[in-house]
Design a protein around this nucleic acid. Sequence first.
DNA 1: GTGGTCTAGACCACT
DNA 2: GTGGTCTAGACCACA
Lengths: 141, 141, 141, 141
Amino acid sequence: MIINIDSTDGIPLYLQIAQELKHSIAMGSVLSGEQLPSVREVAEQITVNPNTVAKAYRELELQGIVETRRGTGTFVARTVPNISKEERERVVSRLIDKALDEARRLQIPDDELAHIVSERIEAFRQAAETGGVDSSASGRG
Amino acid sequence: MIINIDSTDGIPLYLQIAQELKHSIAMGSVLSGEQLPSVREVAEQITVNPNTVAKAYRELELQGIVETRRGTGTFVARTVPNISKEERERVVSRLIDKALDEARRLQIPDDELAHIVSERIEAFRQAAETGGVDSSASGRG
Amino acid sequence: MIINIDSTDGIPLYLQIAQELKHSIAMGSVLSGEQLPSVREVAEQITVNPNTVAKAYRELELQGIVETRRGTGTFVARTVPNISKEERERVVSRLIDKALDEARRLQIPDDELAHIVSERIEAFRQAAETGGVDSSASGRG
Amino acid sequence: MIINIDSTDGIPLYLQIAQELKHSIAMGSVLSGEQLPSVREVAEQITVNPNTVAKAYRELELQGIVETRRGTGTFVARTVPNISKEERERVVSRLIDKALDEARRLQIPDDELAHIVSERIEAFRQAAETGGVDSSASGRG
DNA sequence: GTGGTCTAGACCACT
DNA sequence: GTGGTCTAGACCACA
């Protein structure tokens, strides 16, 4: 489990941690129904106050992504978020746009951009097939 | 100029505003060298305190995306960030990955995802050709 | 920690505060890596709004002179600015010239001026040797 | 008459202009009793609103450095500011300290610093002897 | 009319 | 208790 945070970028730490855990789950590092590392474990790894990590877990629970069982630990939920197809696409479109905004600002030409996109998608497909890996070729963090 | 913010999502308002303005600039709503709407104008439109909008503008100035001229207004900078090709690709790859994470979590099938991506890229190309539009088919926000 | 400000001299308070803190750091009142007084503490001491002090601290952070850690405090950075020898000398020369301008305008004779300069340099040397003092013989402010 | 201003450094333009004019006067570009360039002339040269330049002249008049004669122009005052020797030294000491602060922060060694200082003082002496020059070796601006 | 500074004061994020 | 965000509102610097 790899968690990258940046204490200087203005976004609350607990949201960044939640985002990173989401990434790990999406990448298959922790499968549906499996247990997440403990709050203390994560706190120690990224040298952050345990309260902050606990808040990130609470955030994920609110989003229905994990379930906490008292005295046992935190587990990836088996339920799938219940939003409409349109809603789902809207969320993803917005994130894609963010990447394209930046690409345009950095004056990355269309063909190079297309190449990056297909390359990332391919990396994701492979990760899914091999049953999940922690990091990827993009050098996250 | 369309600015969508969500005062409940934990990310500071001023960062959201900065992000939205960045998007508008990337989409060509405001061309290089042109003037952005005034702080007060934006503040009124999205019913937010002018100080908060001013902070967003300052953030964009720090990022080198806009320039402010006292008593005159805020303008899109004509300078281009000077970073290496590798660096540029890394930044964009990371943003793409974030979108793909979310797509996977929402269990959007691969073909639908591919469709969304090509649809967004196409929207960007059109914006570039037509000289900039304000909104897009994704229904941002 | 002594901070002298003059709310009537036209220079924004937050810049004056930043300047004074810079002086204290240069004089060794707060060593590299050590913690600065809290925003609230300084605000109370000089009877200024905490937001104004916070802005001064943000200014120093932008200049790379201090680092802030949320929930912990603000600390003197241990990094050294990485500019060329020529650049460094240019910056200092300019500041020296400003002092000499004023000396000439006040018709301070050359020998008296030379005395003042060597006296200030000596005060700085002593501060360095004794490990930092708070005030100096010049009666700043 | 050379006037360097920086519209991004937070200090009001009119104070920067006043400071630069003071420098020119100190350097002997405009002698005691002589006429300064007109407000319009300066405004055009540095592309700043004439009102801003006028305010700088008003500031200098308040400080007793120039005199304005209606319909004629602005002249360097013949009077010498009437403050005590101690007061004068305090003002200059403070400016010297500012330069030394920066020198220390930039880790300029003591001997190099001493060399810069004596070099600047020498430049000033020469300017005084030759009857005044506009710029100096320090590359102001 | 445009952006900038400052205040007073509430509430949040984090240790 | 530390720094950060946000608001409401007064006043200043500048064109």
